[in-house]
Amino acid sequence: MLKIDDYAYSNRLKHVHPAEKVGFVMTFLMFTIITKNVVIAMITFSVMSLSIVFAAKIPFSQYLKLLLLPSIFLFTSIAAILVSIAPVYQVNVDTIWFFTIKSWQIYISVANINQAYQLLVTIIGSVSCLYFLILTTPLHQLIWVLRRLKLPVLFIELVGLTYRFIFVLLNKMHEIHLAQSSRLGYQNHRLWISSIAHLIVSLFLKSIQSAKELQIAIDSRGGDMKLYEVELSLSYNRYRCAGILVSIIGLFILTLNT
């Protein structure tokens, strides 16, 4: 998480107007999610990956590690779609693998494979869009965009505070883990479980304490919740805006043709 925040403030696209980056990302993301077109999803992944590695100059090894983070959730979802369970008399004729247990059959069909493949490509394309946004756009620029979209102030403040508390809790977790490790708190399986339990409880108490301290700070200012007032001096680029418009037209034509 700390590395992601560092890249957001040091990448080569940090001076690009945030509205252009959000428009660029949302164009590909919406077409990928709404159309569920495999070709568009693959184009989205390719464009976002090339932009992250070559335009923003994010190391490819770090980007690859980030792509592997959601892989556990992704493959568990894919496995649940691939494998079906049904009574023997209801099994489809397009079954390519099956295992029978009494009157039930566990099987994988062609339809399951097609659905899993479509979901896999769509998710990868969508994740690459989100990675482009968080790796190239600092928090204050995202908050500026949210304010221009006229979203509720409470929602924007919660976004900023949640992002802030992530780093507070990460720092606290590191301190507790270091103290536990120095006292051999992870020496064996039993101690590991006990140490993890104490770590979770300590983080919960720390989050409550930090929230109370923040509320006291807000009350001392008269209850004014406008914690994030952001002004940008960046300017729009007509060529990048034209590129976004061309992308919308191109994706729309591609959707109709495929």
Rank of each mutant, 00 (worst) to 15 (best):
V91F: 02
V91P: 06
V93C: 12
T95K: 11
T95S: 13
I96T: 11
W97K: 10
F98R: 14
F98T: 08
T100P: 01
I101M: 01
W104P: 00
I106K: 02
Y107S: 09
I108L: 05
I108D: 01
I108C: 04
V110E: 08
V110R: 14
N112Y: 10
N114Q: 07
N114H: 08
Q115S: 12
A116G: 12
A116K: 13
A116W: 13
Y117M: 04
Y117T: 05
Y117L: 05
Q118F: 07
Q118Y: 09
L119W: 12
L120I: 03
L120M: 09
V121A: 07
T122R: 11
I123R: 14
I123N: 12
I124W: 08
I124K: 13
I124H: 06
G125L: 06
S126P: 13
S126T: 12
S126L: 10
V127R: 05
V127P: 07
V127Y: 08
V127A: 07
S128Q: 06
C129D: 01
F132M: 09
L135S: 10
L135D: 09
P138D: 01
P138N: 03
P138Y: 04
Q141W: 03
L142H: 05
V145F: 05
L146K: 03
L146G: 06
R148Y: 06
L149Q: 00
K150E: 00
L151M: 01
V153E: 05
I156H: 06
E157Y: 11
L158G: 04
G160S: 09
L161C: 08
T162H: 14
T162N: 15
Y163A: 14
Y163E: 11
R164T: 03
R164L: 11
F165A: 12
I166E: 12
F167M: 02
V168R: 12
L170K: 06
L170R: 07
L170F: 04
N171Y: 01
N171R: 09
M173G: 12
M173V: 00
H174P: 00
H174C: 00
L178D: 03
A179R: 03
A179D: 02
Q180I: 07
S181A: 04
S181C: 01
S182T: 04
R183Q: 08
R183T: 09
L184P: 04
G185R: 13
G185I: 08
Y186M: 03
Y186D: 00
N188T: 01
H189I: 10
H189R: 09
L191R: 14
W192Y: 13
I193D: 09
S195R: 14
I196H: 14
A197L: 15
H198R: 15
H198P: 13
V201R: 15
V201T: 11
L203M: 08
F204I: 02
L205E: 10
L205D: 09
S207K: 11
S207N: 11
S207P: 10
Q209Y: 03
Q209H: 08
S210Y: 14
K212M: 07
L214K: 15
L214C: 12
Q215P: 06
I216Y: 06
A217T: 08
D219G: 02
D219V: 00
D219L: 05
D219C: 02
S220R: 05
R221H: 04
G222K: 05
G222A: 01
G222C: 02
D224E: 03
D224I: 07
L227Q: 15
L227V: 13
L227H: 14
Y228H: 14
E229C: 11
E229L: 13
L232N: 06
L232Q: 05
